[in-house]
Design a protein around this nucleic acid. Structure first.
Lengths: 158, 158
DNA sequence: GTGCTTGCAAATCGTTTGCAATAGC
DNA sequence: GCTATTGCAAACGATTTGCAAGCAC
């Protein structure tokens, strides 16, 4: 009989697991089964999930997972710059495994968040730096209605 | 003896009161003592206050003010486009009486929010519109350390 | 064994809700 | 008197905290 360890809960292929394992190490984050699972979820689900979503999705694979661990882990990831925290939705914080600069669009109807390239010029940044502000994060948030919801709206009216 | 009405609680000069009164009307918002007080607070305090701050500040003038009213009123203001809601801070929502497009900088140390001109180009917006997204709000958030906190940091080290 | 990680349960706190009291026409 | 606004108290829900158990070196 297999020894019952956390690792056995984790069913991903070794190769994928190792890739995420090393990714965490590159941010100076000590990997654990939970941390690998959470990071892997963020890498493979570019949906800007909330804590709740991540927790529910991973509960299946890691039955003992606690929400506290998801909170702690994401806090750690953000501190180490491996993940960015999005405050676009006023109700809850979302997380993005893509740390490259890009804009976000929140649909006010379906609450989904969409990625867009961030074409922004450096002027704001220069003004701040000249004024003595140390800028660590740049966020560009757009809010409105996504095409899918606009379509639904029209159908409802007809 | 003066009749005890809400209006008597309100000590602002008539002129200021009327200006805010009319400002609310211009957004199709029916003015009330509470609404005028809250809008006036936002106009005269460009500190991007939270609900709590507004509530505490106005309690003095309007002792019967309830936090629910502050919530309801700000929700109403945002719906009518008289005020913008900032989701820059993950802990709580802040409000800005200045509805013109500008960027915000949040100091991670003192949690103060600073205004900056928003030099942004239209490319992101065009991409979204071409893709069928209906953009209603544009937010530019920067996070880091403000000059005052940077100075404190250096002093602590020395 | 030691130190870090995890996870439960309780606490916290910003926000919302239900509903009765109040204001203002 | 009617309708909208206000305000209290309770509920809600996301997040944090304290602490004990578990894990890995």
């Amino acid at each position: 009989m297999q020894k019952k360890t956390y690792c056995n809960y984790y069913k991903y292929e070794r190769e994928v697991l190792m890739k995420t394992y090393n990714y965490l190490l590159s941010f100076n984050i000590k990997p654990s089964v939970q941390r690998i699972a959470i990071m892997d979820y963020l890498m493979t689900h570019r949906t800007h999930p909330s804590i709740e979503e991540i927790y529910l999705a991973l509960c299946e694979d890691i039955p003992t997972l606690s929400k506290t661990t998801v909170y702690n882990t994401l806090k750690l990831f953000v501190e180490h710059g491996a993940v960015q925290m999005l405050t676009i939705d006023e109700k809850y914080v979302c997380y993005d495994g893509d740390i490259n600069l890009h804009a976000h669009f929140l649909c006010k109807k379906c609450n989904k968040i969409f990625d867009f390239p961030a074409y922004y010029n450096e002027e704001s940044l220069c003004t701040m730096k000249n004024d003595g502000y140390e800028v660590e994060e740049v966020h560009q948030y757009f809010k409105g209605i996504c095409p899918s919801c606009l379509k639904d709206n029209k159908e409802e009216i007809n």
